[in-house]
Design a protein around this nucleic acid. Sequence first.
DNA 1: AAACGTAATGAAAACGTTTTCAAACACAGC
DNA 2: GCTGTGTTTGAAAACGTTTTCATTACGTTT
Lengths: 350, 350
Amino acid sequence: MEQTIRKNTVKKKRLGAQPAASTVTEVAKRAGVSVSTVSRILNGTARVSDDKRRSVERAIEDLNFKPNVLAQSLKSGQSMTIGVITQAVESPFFNELLKGIEEGLQGSGYASLMASGHWNSQSEIERIRLLIARRVDGIILLTGNLNNEQILDLASQTPIVAVGHTAHSDNAASIFIDSRMGGYLATKHLISLGHRRIAHIQGPQEQHDASNRLHGYKMALEEAGIAFDEDLLAQGDFIEPGGLMAMNRLLDKGVSFSAVFCANDQTAYGARLALYRRGIRVPEDMSLIGFDDLPMSSYTTPPLTTIRQPVYEVGQTAAKRLLRLIRGEGAESVNLNVELVIRESTRRLG
Amino acid sequence: MEQTIRKNTVKKKRLGAQPAASTVTEVAKRAGVSVSTVSRILNGTARVSDDKRRSVERAIEDLNFKPNVLAQSLKSGQSMTIGVITQAVESPFFNELLKGIEEGLQGSGYASLMASGHWNSQSEIERIRLLIARRVDGIILLTGNLNNEQILDLASQTPIVAVGHTAHSDNAASIFIDSRMGGYLATKHLISLGHRRIAHIQGPQEQHDASNRLHGYKMALEEAGIAFDEDLLAQGDFIEPGGLMAMNRLLDKGVSFSAVFCANDQTAYGARLALYRRGIRVPEDMSLIGFDDLPMSSYTTPPLTTIRQPVYEVGQTAAKRLLRLIRGEGAESVNLNVELVIRESTRRLG
DNA sequence: AAACGTAATGAAAACGTTTTCAAACACAGC
DNA sequence: GCTGTGTTTGAAAACGTTTTCATTACGTTT
């Protein structure tokens, strides 16, 4: 894999190349004023005579002085940094959230420190502790396996906005998305198209979102008077390979069904491939519906019918609320609705 | 969209909930020793008698003391943070890189600050300056539109590892991927399958990767004695919508062709949809090849033949090299090779 | 001319660490 | 009992800011 290698000369003194960063003291000296005066000019925190201002400004220019944020943070107790706990950096779902957060933080002066929890509550807590140790001013928690008690406990140390949770206190706000309703809507859509034998590929059982979607699926069946059939349930893992294998298992079982509700879009992509491999056409022979409305779902063949979560907006909202929490303005928790988007992977039976 | 809202009581004193973080001074006081002793125990930097050690450890336990990283950073001049400049958080390509970086940073004690350049050299420089102002210990630059001179200039202020560039100095290393070779391999593959009329949907012209891939395409054509035909070139934008529209334009032109080399996988996804819409089958009627080998490309219908870049490994390598650069150990620049992965979207003509 | 208010400025303390330096102490050897 | 050696320890300085407090200078009022 390696083609060409150019080797650097090893440097002994690592700071050799960098021009030593200048300090407020040097600026003061060069301008012939006290450090207090420099600071006042920097922050506009008091008036200072025009001639001093000018000479200080020149000194700043000359030395290319930039205040040391670390020192400012130490003094002020604010790091101007927030922590973000994601579960899987490589997942399109989380990235859409991150994009929203970035946008929500725009122009606030805050930067974000990223860490992955990998769907593991132990590792989540560990990462959060790490972020707190770094003195982040607040944390955005993107789903995960923590329970409300744990979240509120952590929130006693730093403000938290938790996406996909319902924890709520003075120092914690949540943004909850109604997965159960989503599962219900997805299944109901299939039923309304005349399907009666509807399979479900579920997500990891320990995740709330997964069990809520399953619950919604059952609700819709029950409402339509269709008995829940254990044989039509297959276990997925929220990513493509699981969807592929689950669909294969379903097909191999020999039970008949005409539609599948997949716990998320990535699962549906996997299931789609399994069908393609067997020459089962979508939507002619089998209807397929996902959950999330990832950007890619508009571009699958055929484009995927799915349940849309306002992912981007959620990220944005989370960031905004965290800023409010940090400013001590309190924040509301909010439940967001989910919406059916009909594309071309579902079709009337018959 | 908003369903339920619970409002927080507005807090006046924002720190109300947090137990005031304890300091090394308090620990010292409680343990009846000096702060120096506490520090020594914390860092194992000198021996201290067993009884003092025990009482200090108890005090730390009692007060739940965690050293303030900000203060440590100020003292040491190391923020234990690196900056990462990505171009688009929401892109699967960049996320694969980020995943690699996260993995490469594992256990190093470094955390990463994220910022997006949005393919805009001005905004890239601005973000980098911001990161430098925050005293990051180094920066990983993921592609982008900066030229080598600009990169080397920035590298005089902080160590930089630049992915997709060739800048190299004592304080900068690059990881370069041979896009031209990739374009060549992709086109050659199509030629070897008997295709002669091969279209290309190119990426944004100002990006090196895009023009290199185009260059490789032309090289392969020339080698095979096929004249380059301007009519078979269409402009894309590295994302799906551009691929869709470009393919439509190509088709509408009425020129005939049997294969398309797309500048990246996302472009291929878009092109695929355009073909689907017109009932043109892949690969029976049209061969399609992409570039990147995104995770999704194994799951499209049909799975996409593409040029694989070792994206994840690149991220990992970038992180590792940056750590070396930071430690002043120097670092090598490296060119990585690219590889053809044949799936089911290309087929022998005839 | 004395008294006073106001505006501009600087010295010093503070944020929470780490590290240098010197002092205190213990113990052995003479 | 004195010197020397080595180990533990604490005081204080330093990192680069911001902010409090006191001082100076100046113009105004009586």
